[in-house]
Amino acid sequence: MRTMYFYRDKGLFLQRLHPATTFLYTGLMMILAVIYSNPLYLTAMLAVVIWTIIELDGRETLKWYSRIAGMMAVFVMIINPLLSREGQTILWHGPRVPVIGVLDISLEAALYGLNMALRLFLLIAVFAMYNLMMDPDRAMSSVSRIARKSAVVLALTVRLIPSMVSQARNVADIQRARGVNLDSGGIYQRWKKRIPFLKVMLLTSLENSWHTAEAMEARAFGSGPPTRYVTEVWRPRDTWITAAVLVSLLTAITGLLAGAGSFEFYPRLGDLTGSGEEILILIILTIMLAIPPALARGYKGWNFIERRI
């Protein structure tokens, strides 16, 4: 089963965090990525995330995600300049288009599109990082503490998929033995040949679900409070990272109240660096957010840290 997961367990430092720590760290990153519009802030965060991904040995994953992000980014970079008419530095006077109106492309709107593409890359990178860090099994078992039945449904579903895949392979073999060539013909033909699949799968798996339910009853499901298989350990590293996350959260809130991290695009581009305070907040925030990858690096290369955390 575990080989089917996107996640690969490599026993890395960052994969051995408490689930709560991982959730806090990635959650904060996701929220900040959507709140900040200043390219400096976004770039700094992107750098931190990419460092974390490298510490997680995930260059391939990053590439895979970048491809998706690239496709979405093209759209974001095109649609923003086309639709926004609030920028004042006009780069190109376009013709009048029936529905949209005058098609003027402004510098501000083009840069806004670029900035949003940056935000998109950041968000996608944060998710790539989450996928590399968090074992779905451990995530599920930590969910089971608050939502027991939903977690049981999740776990059952995950457990059923590999058996369904092998079942589907059997069905395909039987079909082939009867002379159905699944990989010939046009799209519609191929699609149509896969239909009997579904029917067989539905009937068999519904019958199997009956057995699953009986097995659950036989293991005393619902007769008392559930037991847990995975035990999570809270280590000093979790304390360190949680502290860093809390400090960066406080910094971010203080900054937001002072207006740091936002950037005016319309009608004219604002001041990128802003006041000295904004730069200070950016530096503190970046350092705090970079603590997890820094600890991971220290864990690898420095015995002193390895023994302490």
């Binding site: 039945k149 579903t157 995950v158 998929i161 895949v165 519904l206 199997n208 679900s209 339910a213 659950m216």
Partner: peptide, 23 residues
């Protein structure tokens, strides 16, 4: 919910999720 409800929900969910793969 009893075990049968959970099993049927999980089965249909697994079917729906696995259905994304052959297609």
């Amino acid at each position: 919910v009893n075990s049968k409800d959970l099993a049927v929900i999980a089965t249909m969910a697994a079917l729906a999720a696995a259905g994304r793969i052959p297609f």
